[in-house]
Amino acid sequence: MRFPETPLVLLHAFPLDHRMWDEVRPGIAEHIELITPDQRGFGDASLGDDEPDLATVATDVIDRLGGRRVVLGGCSMGGYVAMAVLREAPELVAGLLLVSTRATADADAGRANRHAMASRIEEEGPGFVPDAVLPTLLGSETTDRRPEVVAAVRTLVSEQDGAAIAWAQRAMAARPDSSEILRNSDVPTLIVRGEQDTLIPAEEADALAALMPKAEVVVLAGAGHLPPLEVPEQFTGAVARWLE
């Protein structure tokens, strides 16, 4: 399988920005043109005044593509946006790279947690967010053995705008189930999950793969929810093998 003249667009996780791909950028760029945009309100992207909806973020991506067909990838929230793009403009998606993400909508408890964080940010500010999200974002092996990764993720989270974090939480809480969209897609798909990911356990990655006839799953040892930051060499190798 090859994607000649087809760029790879990678959409970052919540609550980070395009810099989450920095460690894997050189290796992946040897194989394919790589584009890593910031999403609504994160990094250098403006938030605007739209109501929280991942379809709005998908429209941003579609507009940026300008009709160009791409391999579309995303980690966690970025995966949700990739599925929203597939829903709105399937003709632009030549392949999917889904990292630490799921097709299903949030359960009631998950939605409640997202809205609670958004409300707390508006009441207190975002200072508590790094401590709130780090334990679930990173696997125990990363936390124990790679303090520099923990520090890098903490910095990325702490530099994001609180209004964007609250907006994204509400947008993710409102997202629809994408199972049928994926079931009706026949594009080649690589699904990547960290072995220690407590947010996306093995059965969810397998269920995601089962929806798609051309999907394969790669499990990366020593990684939690953010494999590109935790095990960049493993992640780069997995993506390069899939592309080539």
Rank of each mutant, 00 (worst) to 15 (best):
A238I: 07
G79H: 09
H31I: 03
E51R: 14
V219Y: 05
A151H: 11
G27K: 11
M172H: 02
L65M: 03
A84L: 05
A221R: 12
G67P: 07
R145I: 03
T36G: 02
P188A: 14
L190D: 08
V99P: 05
D106T: 02
Q169M: 10
Q160D: 07
R68E: 11
L8A: 06
V187A: 07
E230G: 02
V24T: 13
P135G: 04
V149C: 01
D108Y: 09
A205F: 11
P130L: 06
G73L: 03
G74E: 06
A55H: 12
S140K: 14
L208K: 08
E216K: 12
V70I: 00
P176H: 06
A171C: 07
G67M: 01
L182I: 09
R114S: 09
V24Q: 13
M172A: 07
P7R: 00
A112N: 03
N184C: 13
R87F: 03
R145N: 15
T155A: 14
L137M: 15
I191E: 07
F14P: 00
R64G: 13
T236H: 10
L54V: 10
E244N: 14
M77R: 07
L65Y: 02
L72F: 06
R2H: 15
A168R: 00
R114Q: 03
P232D: 01
T143K: 15
M77L: 15
E122S: 14
A118R: 04
T101H: 11
A105T: 09
P176L: 09
D53E: 06
D50N: 08
I200Y: 03
P188D: 14
L65G: 10
E51I: 08
R170Y: 09
A29V: 07
L182D: 01
A207S: 14
D38P: 05
I191T: 05
A13K: 12
W167G: 05
D17L: 01
E195H: 13
M212D: 02
A221G: 13
R183I: 03
P7Q: 00
G237C: 10
A82E: 01
